[in-house]
């Protein structure tokens, strides 16, 4: 079964080129019993769009996130990122795509505890051989954008949850990716801190960043200009 969202797409958002195009992409986990975690669907996200993908747990959100983030390969269909067919790419090229085109924000931050805030952000540029001086400067800029320029030499342990997540956002931004992919970014945060993060996302959106936020939180979802819901592995535009 497939859900065709195509008719709704072209009218949406700023009319930039498509960053993400899922064409009949599906993911089945071989059993036994085989599970259709994500049923063949179409989804297009254009440059500059702020999309939330909402769904209860077990709905296939994570599977979609892994597919979008090139962390997993679809079993059917074609996934174009920046117009590049990712299905034809090898392991290395996919790693390169992740490193340069996708910025990840995780629920549990995934910061290295024994490294400074600045080093954590710089880490995102280690694997694309950014010159060191430029790397540092970009990391400082990115931290400035999330309002943490006063915390550069702190270690993540000494920061609040909201600050930690902002470090993670800075790390996702620093490579200037095509897509910022957030997985339950407020899942470990209280309301106030969630607000901080959502404001950061709003700011990024108005600066032209393409965002896809996967969440089960309606408040978070409503901040996005476009909501897509996922239920039982099926996408619905709302």
């Amino acid at each position: 079964m497939s859900v065709d969202l195509e008719p709704a797409m072209p009218a949406r958002g700023p009319s930039g080129p498509a960053v993400i195009e899922l064409q009949e992409v599906g993911r089945t986990f071989p059993g036994p019993p085989a599970v259709d975690a994500f049923k063949p669907s179409n989804l297009t996200i254009n440059q500059g769009e702020y999309v939330s993908i909402i769904g209860p747990s077990g709905s296939g959100k994570s599977t979609l996130l892994h597919l979008l983030g090139l962390l997993d390969r679809p079993t059917t269909g074609t996934y174009l990122l920046d117009g590049i067919d990712t299905g034809s790419l090898g392991d290395n090229a996919r790693a390169g795509m992740r490193g340069s085109r996708i910025g990840f924000v995780f629920q549990s931050f995934h910061l290295l505890h024994h490294r400074s805030v600045l080093e954590n952000v710089e880490l995102a540029q280690v694997y694309n051989r950014m010159p060191r001086k430029e790397r540092r400067q970009r990391a400082v800029n990115a931290l400035e954008r999330v309002g943490l320029s006063h915390r550069l030499s702190f270690t993540p342990r000494t920061l609040s949850g909201g600050e930690r997540q902002r470090v993670a956002v800075a790390r996702a931004l620093v490579t200037e990716p095509s897509l910022l992919l957030a997985d339950e970014p407020t899942g470990n945060l209280d309301t106030e801190m969630s607000g901080e993060i959502m404001e950061v996302f709003d700011g990024l959106h108005s600066a032209g960043m393409t965002l896809a936020v996967i969440t089960h939180d309606l408040d978070v979802s409503h901040r996005a200009e476009r909501q897509v819901s996922i239920v039982d592995g099926t996408l619905h535009e709302s």
């Binding site: 117009g83 290395n92 694309n128 051989r129 954008r145 108005s206 600066a207």
Partner: peptide
């Protein structure tokens, strides 16, 4: 908030990840 300066790079080229030896040491 400052506006995003689009990174100058050819979006149609897939780059393989690279890591300098000094970074590896670090």
């Amino acid at each position: 908030m400052t506006t995003l300066t689009p990174q100058v790079r050819d979006r149609s080229v897939v780059q393989s990840p690279k890591m300098g030896f000094r970074d590896l040491l670090d």
